[in-house]
Structures are given as C-alpha cells and as structure tokens.
Design a protein around this nucleic acid. Structure first.
Length: 479
RNA sequence: GGCGCUGUAGCCAAGUGGUAAGGCAGAGGUCUGCAAAACCUUUAUCGUGAGUUCGAUUCCCACCGGCGCCUCCA
C-alpha cells in the first residue's frame, strides 16, 4: 500500500503524491517563544518528526521548515491585545528579544531531548519583516487588503475560499459583538490584521509603507513558507487548535496573493488533555516538557505519545505514562539482550511479514500505534529465540538491523544512552557490579543462598536489578 | 447557537460490513534454589435505540455522554 494521509482540507484520506517527484516541501507551525514548551508541543512536534522521518524512509528528500514566532502573536485576538512576547518581557523585566532568544533555546533543548530532528530551516518572524511587508503590498495591490489608520487588514469577503479548511464558510453566522469586538477601522468583523500600527510604548516596531508598526500573526507563516517552499507546496502541519483562524487566514492571504493553491495536504495533530480537559495555564493543569522530564525519561514520553494516533486526543496522566513505560521497557530489554547476545545457534526470524506490517501501518496515515504493536509481536518471537538456542550470525544481524531501522531511525524509541548492565563495560562502577555478581555466582555454586540473596537485595536497594539466566547473571538499572 | 471530533475490556489504545491489534494491570501455568525476566494460557460483542443489509462494532438517523474550535494557544 502506498502512503495515504488524512487531509484536513478534503476531510478524507488521500494517496500522497508530491508536487515534485521525489521531493516533499513541508511546513509546520512552530512555537510562539514566550514560555517553555509544554507536553502539547511535545505531541505535536514528535508527531511531525515521525512523519518527516517516515517520508525520508520512503526515499523522499524532505525540506522541513518550522518557524519560530517571535513577534506578532497577540494575547487577545489577531487585532487587539498585547504582543505575547512583549507581555512576558514585562513580567520578566527584560526586553522582548531576550525573551524570544531564551525560550527559543529552551524549545530546542526540549525538542532535542525528545529526539526530534531539527528542521532544515527554522526561520524567525522578526527575520522576515521585508518579506511580510512585500506580501502585504501584493494583497493591497490586488484589492484583498486595505489600510486603515496605519494598520492593514485582510478583507475576508474578497476571498471566496475563506472557510474551506475549517468548514466555517458562512461568515455572517459569526455573531458580531459577542466575542469579536468590531473595531471601527475594520470593514468587517472577520477581517484580520496583516500589519498593526505600533503605539508609542510598543517595543517591537519596524518601518513600513504604512508607518511604524509590526506584523500580524498569520502573515509570517505565509511569507516564510512561500519564501522557502514556493507558492505551492506539499504539506502544512500544525495543531488542531490552529486550524481556525490561523491556517484559514494563511490560506486566504497566500492564495489571494498568488492566485494558486497554497498547500496540497493539511495535517493537524489532535491535542493533549489532562484529566480529560484541554491543558491551559488558566485551568491550572499546565505541564511543561521540562517538568514532565523530571519524572519520566524523554524516550518514555515519546513512546507514550506515539502509542496513540497523532489525530487522536491524548489524555496525559502519570498512571498512563507509567503503564506505557512498562511496555517500553520490555522492548528495551529485548533490544539490549540482542545487543549482548552471543552467536550460539542457527535461529533466524522471517522479518518480511513484520516489515510489511510496519510499513502498512506507517503508510496508513502514519499509524504509529499499530506500527509499535508490530514490535511487541516481534519482541515475543525474539525472546523465544534468544532463550532457546540463540540466533545465527546473519539472523542476529538482521533482527538488530530491523530494530535500528524502524524502532530507532523511524520512531526514535530505542534506549537513549541510559546505562544498562552487562559485561564488557569499561566503566569502573559497572565493573564493580560485575564483580559483585561474580562473587554472588560463587556463593550460589556453593549453595550459599543467604549470601547470594543478600547481594541481590543490596543491589536492588541501590537500583540495580539482577536477573539470573542459564548463561549467568545480568543486571540493569531500574529507575 | 454555529462548525467539527469522539464514546471499544479494570486502565491506555488500534481497527474492520462477516462476530475485535497491541500495551498496562489481573488470574493460572512453564522455567528457577528462591526471585526477576522470558514464554504459554486466560479476561470485551465495541454508549443507547431504531434503520439499511444475508450479515454492522464498522454505513444512515435519533438520543445520551465526553471533547475541541468559533478569542491567543501545538
């Protein structure tokens, strides 16, 4: 089965056919850098990371652009309120650029830990002011935008396709005056800001044909996506919460300016809930990646997220994460055993069916949960072979390669460098543990179980789990 | 009110018009000096009601419950 993906724009699964053969141009909305990344960011960027990895596995040359929003994102709606970053700067008694830099670094630190590959291009909104101004000028020239009192607004009614992404086609149904305050300078309630006039106290400001101001939130993505990926490109991703109005506005701006389709496939990941409710600062159930990683390892968090589908909502709880972690440990144990296995037998595993299942899963709209299920079934077979004779040289090599390619390269869920036991370790601490196990082995040989159990108990106390097998004892660190 | 999603075993979570993956937890067993690990066996008729169909958990409708968007949010 070739790759199929669910296109939000058409609301159905479609076969993936890139605009240029062999190449994929992909844009994913990046974070607004006014705070540390939360576990919702983790779900979104892990999902798209795996999507990128899978496209690359299929042989596509993927150009992955993910922006950093460091200006223009306002606290209220697109037209009122203060800039989020400027607000945070006030709270931290510093200036906006420092806030943006600080949280940008924090963001990449978190994403790196979670195993997400860096995007090929990570453009900043503040670094693309001329491109945004140019795009706004095009929209004014073509009659899709108008200036009012130093600000520029997009005229929604000038673009017939507005609403096609979110299904919100009838703009009259918006109840004026309830939640969207009509500003007198706007021609219609649903018009949105492309450029905002800067008040005198506004720190982030640039010169423009309309006076000193700053760009609106939506325009940056259009300008940067088109600059690096062209006026039409393959995939645009983002969180479901950005479907409207952000992505709707992106389509309107871009297609009104160019007269051609902006994006072929729109992908939206579902949201993280905590206790069944959306996570929010105001709800008090807000969890940052950094806090989550104090309790759980990065690969556990990643695995937990990938065990549900990217388009499904995911409810976060300690219990759910621990349950996922127990399963992941099983995978890791087997992988570790494979790495330490001696060539003692002639066993091989027919990997083709497993590979087919994995590929079919991923090709079915990036179904990572069923892809992972493949590994649990393979795991069982591997363990059986390991404890009944062992693998042949080729058999071992093939199985390890399978884990490395699919669990490692594609899903990124193999152990991330944490210490595990076994012989052959150069570390002095590891050697000391190996020595203790050797002494325990001697005690066991003399049927001195009191001593052998004492050693095992004491090791357990310091977090070292001992396991006896026919070939001897092994150990690993328990977290 | 408008748009959309969703309701599968104790918990998490896939999926299909022909009676349901995987994980966690539980039970029994094999192995073991004991344990751990591993392996084997075992636990659901898919929110409720009606309809289409030879047959529906999967399609249509209604209802009940949960969630998201409609204001910034991955």
């Amino acid at each position: 089965m070739p790759l199929e993906l669910y296109n939000t724009l058409t609301r159905k699964k479609e076969f993936f056919v890139p605009l240029n053969e062999g190449r994929v141009a992909m844009y994913v909305c990046g974070p607004t850098v006014y705070g540390h990344a939360h576990i919702g960011h983790a779900k979104s960027y892990i999902s798209f990371d795996v999507i990128v990895r899978w496209l690359r596995h299929l042989g596509y040359a993927v150009k992955y652009v993910q922006n950093i929003t460091d200006v223009g994102h306002l606290t209220d709606d697109a037209d009122a309120g203060d800039d989020k970053i400027a607000e945070q700067a006030k709270r931290e008694k510093t200036d906006p650029m420092e806030v943006a830099q600080f949280y940008t670094r924090s963001f990449y630190e978190d994403m790196d830990r979670l195993g997400n590959l860096r995007p090929n291009i990570a453009p900043l909104a503040t670094g693309h002011i001329p491109e945004q101004i140019e795009l706004i000028e095009r929209l004014i020239a073509s009659g899709h935008a108008y200036e009012a009192n130093g600000s520029v607004y997009f005229s929604v009614q000038s673009f017939t396709g507005y609403g096609k992404l979110s299904g919100r086609l009838n703009q009259e149904e918006l109840e004026p005056g309830t939640r969207i305050e009509i500003k007198s300078e706007k021609h219609a309630a649903s018009d949105f800001a492309l450029w905002k006039k800067a008040e005198s106290n506004h720190l982030m400001r640039w010169n423009s044909p309309w006076g000193v101001g700053f760009p609106g939130w939506h325009i940056e993505c259009s300008a940067m996506a088109m600059k690096y990926l062209g006026e039409s490109f393959d995939i645009h991703g983002g969180g479901l919460d950005n479907q409207f109005p952000h992505h709707e506005c992106e389509i309107a701006q871009s297609e009104a300016a160019t007269g051609r389709p902006f994006v072929k496939y729109w992908l939206h990941n579902n949201l993280v809930t905590v206790g069944g409710q959306k996570m929010g600062k105001s709800l008090g159930n807000f969890l940052t990646v950094k806090d989550a990683l104090k309790k759980f390892s990065p690969v556990m968090l990643r695995f937990f997220i990938l065990q549900s589908h990217y388009r499904s909502p995911l409810d976060f709880s300690d219990a759910a994460l621990e349950a996922a972690g127990a399963g992941l440990e099983k995978l890791h144990d087997t992988y570790r055993r494979l790495g330490e296995a001696k060539i003692t037998g002639a066993a091989i595993i027919e990997l083709a069916p497993f590979e087919q299942r994995f590929i079919d899963s991923m090709n079915d709209d990036f179904n990572s949960p069923t892809a992972i299920a493949t590994f649990f079934d393979l795991n069982r077979e591997v363990n059986t072979k390991l404890s009944s004779g062992g693998f042949s040289e080729a058999g071992l090599k093939d199985v390890l390669s399978f884990y490395n390619r699919f669990a490692g390269d594609v899903l990124g869920i193999l152990p991330g460098g944490e210490t595990t036991g076994g012989s052959g370790s150069a570390d002095a601490g590891n050697k000391a543990i190996d020595l203790l196990l050797e002494l325990r082995q001697q005690a066991k040989a003399k049927k001195d179980f009191a001593t052998s159990d004492l050693i095992r108990m004491k090791l357990t106390d310091i977090g070292v789990e001992v396991q006896d097998t026919k070939e001897g004892s092994s150990w690993k660190l328990k977290n």
